[in-house]
Design a binder for these strands. Structure first.
Lengths: 224, 224
DNA sequence: CGGGTACTTGACAATGGTCAAGTGTGGTGG
DNA sequence: CCACCACACTTGACCATTGTCAAGTACCCG
């Protein structure tokens, strides 16, 4: 079965024994979602949580006027919707696919009983949630203490981190979604891209961004 | 020893056996902090996490210009500083006492080995972190999608929740700190208190707030 | 009673959001 | 293969909310 391979490579189930992986595969289910499909909505009763096998999923909050704030974008190997497994029982945000996606579902009750028997899974889940809390901490810091240009600069620098040496990065999401990730709107984002370009800090070609002046970009990310 | 009693009543260690509580008391240490004392700073290497025995502690992020965003305010029975126990290893934010406080410390390594043996502690910790994630989700929603009056209204309504029937609440923190909790500054908060008062929605007497028009306050919290 | 901190108030500036009208651009069907 | 349509993105004019700076007032603690 393909799932076993997938589970072994996911952050949350890494380091488990074959027996543990085997147990997991017996309780999970795999589904396909087309692009733009709703996995769950805020307030929905939660029967379990999810793992992205392939594709891309956005987790977001919606304002009454329709503006959205993206909390996370998850790709292959990442889990989402675990909060209501442990507290509450309703999803605290919305989940919608950004691409056609294959998603694995783990039912709450079976998973909880498994976690009671296998401390390693609990520890992995704790690490996963800790990371999530840390990221939220950054998001809050950005939204509350930094201006949009700083947030964008920090985002570009973050994309650059992996690509050692290179100066060009490619956005894996649309600029509209990026605006929503950064807590702003497409118009504002567009103007800031414009500003950074005319100041010679970056060059934008569609979804590709070339960093021309990294030092300056780092200044901007720091808030001047 | 007084700690055992304290642990039993804390959210994170509730439902543990006497033996488990006993184990915990052997690894923890208790310290007193005066008002305004630093428990840890962002970036500090973490040797463990903390439980508030008495007093009040603020967890916050600091901007380069000195503005602060409070992430949590923790009182008796609540834990903080657990994130780096499971990931990273450095505290992601600052912790300073708002009052003279008695705080219990749990060293990371001993706690991790304990958690491996006692799944119930892991489950409690998972519930604690899930709740934390849920609250962050609200904070992000507020900062990104709501204006300051909505945030204040929601905060007052939150304080009102416990007090069934009553219409008067008391802030347990200063208005300056409240501003920092709501992601704004004292001047702005002051003006909004003013506005709500002149509109007859609330009445403010020092730290006491009387809700005169709850329906209107709920409208404001919803974003009109 | 005094001093410092917390809070308030005013005038102003600026960031960023709103509304409206373009300008691409990619994908689909003829 | 091209035309067209929808959608993503851009640009402009405007404005609302909120932050900045500077005083002034009130209040609490010693």
């Amino acid at each position: 079965m393909r799932s076993a391979e997938l589970l072994r490579n996911s952050f949350i189930f890494q380091g488990l024994t074959e027996a543990q992986i085997g147990e997991l595969t017996t309780i999970c289910a795999e589904w396909d979602y087309p692009k733009g499909a709703t996995v769950f909505l805020e307030g929905d009763r939660a029967r379990g949580f999810y793992l992205v096998a392939s594709g891309l999923v956005k987790i977001f909050k919606l304002a009454f006027d329709g503006k959205e704030q993206i909390l996370h974008i998850f790709g292959p190997g990442e889990v989402f919707g675990e909060v209501p497994v442990f507290v509450g029982g309703n999803y605290p945000a919305n989940a919608v696919t950004l691409e056609a996606s294959r998603i694995v579902f783990f039912p709450k009750d079976e998973f909880l009983s498994l976690i009671g028997r296998e401390p390693q899974i609990a520890l992995n889940m704790l690490a996963d949630m800790s990371l999530r809390l840390k990221r939220f901490t950054h998001l809050i810091e950005n939204l509350s203490l930094k201006e949009v240009p700083s947030r964008l600069a920090a985002y570009i620098l973050f994309l650059l981190e992996d690509k050692r040496g290179e100066a060009e990065v490619r956005l894996q999401i649309s600029k509209g979604h990026l605006a929503s990730v950064l807590g702003t709107i497409p118009e504002t984002l567009s103007r800031i891209f414009n500003r950074l370009t005319s100041e010679g800090v970056i060059e934008v070609k569609g979804r590709n961004i070339v960093v021309l002046n990294r030092a300056r970009l780092e200044q901007i990310a720091a808030g001047l």
